[in-house]
Amino acid sequence: MDIYYIERKSGKKQKEIVAGNKFLEWIYDTKPGNTLLEIFVKKKLFSSIYGKFQELSFSRKKIKDFVGNLSIDMTEAERECIDEYHNFNDFFARKLKKEARPMSFDEEHLISPADGRVLAYENLDKDKLIQVKGSFYTLEEFFQDKNLANEYDKGICIVVRLCPADYHRFHFPDNGIPRTTRRINGRYYSVNPIALRKIMGIYCQNKREITLFESDSFGKIILAEVGATCVGSIIQTYKTGESVGKGDEKGYFKFGGSTVILFLKKGQLKVDKDILLNTKLGLETKVNMGEVIAKKN
């Protein structure tokens, strides 16, 4: 199955290069694959073992082909030479040069917290959030908190899906104060559209970490990171209760495609029209961390 998205800068429709595409299609589209998925792949043990291998020095050998196959621009990285990385996870969680991700510091602009492909929804129905067309989940299932679900009903949801080729550190979308992250254990299904179309409620089934962020400009925002197949860990690097600046690092994912989801209350902002239009057409919009994705009402 081919996956397409809109490259925001050009406005053109692009075909996504999917790492491990044949494996994903076999796992999610065949009976033997489904069996292996349910018995082993979706469980923590598989992703933990795979993640441990990415920490070993011999995993460095994968970096060159990974960079070439996925057309990763290493001139953006603080360490441009692949020989400088100790193992694959060291490379995967690489830091970028500050100038590689310019951002807006206008207090009325909400920036993307990560590189990725964005879908956005306004006026949420807490009992019927869209995972992909024809597949839904509820806020209460996602938060595992009925009161919190009611609080964000009729609000805004912005989903940023990270592919293996993307920069895998995530950041704060505004100045503010982050509170404690609540960890919810779960499965490790892929968050690729191939899997999202097959497995109901992946975001509610997968491991996730939920942070209440008191934004200076947009009130209380929920920042959630969702794990996926082969994501060894979600690492939080911020300090609870300490003020942060817009664009400051919040954490990073170890190997694997992953997702960052933002929930905002009704009336806090207006999502950019191009992102909303593409979402209605069933297409994600490719953005980089720091790009403006919404503006204050």
Rank of each mutant, 00 (worst) to 15 (best):
R161Y: 04
Y137N: 06
K286L: 06
C157R: 12
Y189I: 01
K246H: 07
R169K: 12
R79T: 04
D125M: 12
E225N: 10
I27R: 02
A77F: 05
L264S: 01
L223D: 01
S217G: 05
Q236T: 10
L212K: 05
E284H: 05
N123P: 05
F263P: 00
K128Y: 14
I275A: 09
I222T: 04
S217W: 06
Q14A: 09
L196S: 10
M289T: 02
D174V: 13
L129P: 13
F92P: 07
A93H: 04
K64S: 01
F105W: 03
V231N: 06
C204P: 09
D174H: 13
I210L: 10
L162S: 05
K254G: 03
N69E: 10
M200A: 11
D272M: 07
L139H: 01
P178H: 06
Y152S: 11
S59M: 07
F105S: 05
R179W: 11
T138E: 10
I177R: 15
N34D: 15
N192P: 15
K239F: 13
D248T: 02
I130N: 10
D216G: 05
L281Q: 03
I63V: 13
N278R: 06
C81S: 13
I27N: 02
E242P: 05
T240H: 12
I222N: 02
Y121M: 11
N192V: 15
V271L: 05
G251P: 02
H86G: 01
V191C: 12
A114F: 02
N206C: 04
V18L: 13
F213Q: 09
I293A: 03
V271N: 03
L276Y: 00
F263E: 00
G251Y: 02
E209K: 04
V18D: 05
E25N: 13
C204S: 15
L37N: 15
E25T: 14
L212H: 03
P102S: 01
R197E: 14
T285G: 03
T138H: 08
L45Y: 14
L277V: 03
V41Q: 00
T181D: 11
E242C: 12
L276M: 01
N150Y: 07
Y137S: 11
D29G: 08
L223Y: 09
R161C: 07
E107N: 07
K98L: 13
K13Y: 06
Q54I: 12
K133I: 09
A149E: 05
P193T: 10
T285I: 02
L119Y: 14
K246G: 05
F172P: 14
Q268T: 14
I130Y: 10
D216A: 11
I156F: 00
F58H: 04
P193H: 13
V287H: 07
K9T: 09
V231H: 05
R179D: 15
I111M: 00
V287D: 05
L139R: 00
S233I: 03
Y85I: 02
F88E: 06
M289W: 02
F58A: 08
K154V: 05
A195Q: 14
D274H: 03
S243I: 12
L148G: 01
L37V: 12
Q205W: 00
K270P: 00
G282Y: 12
S135F: 10
E16A: 15
K254I: 03
E80F: 02
K61W: 07
N123T: 12
N150H: 04
A195F: 13
K133V: 11
S215L: 09
G247T: 08
V159M: 08
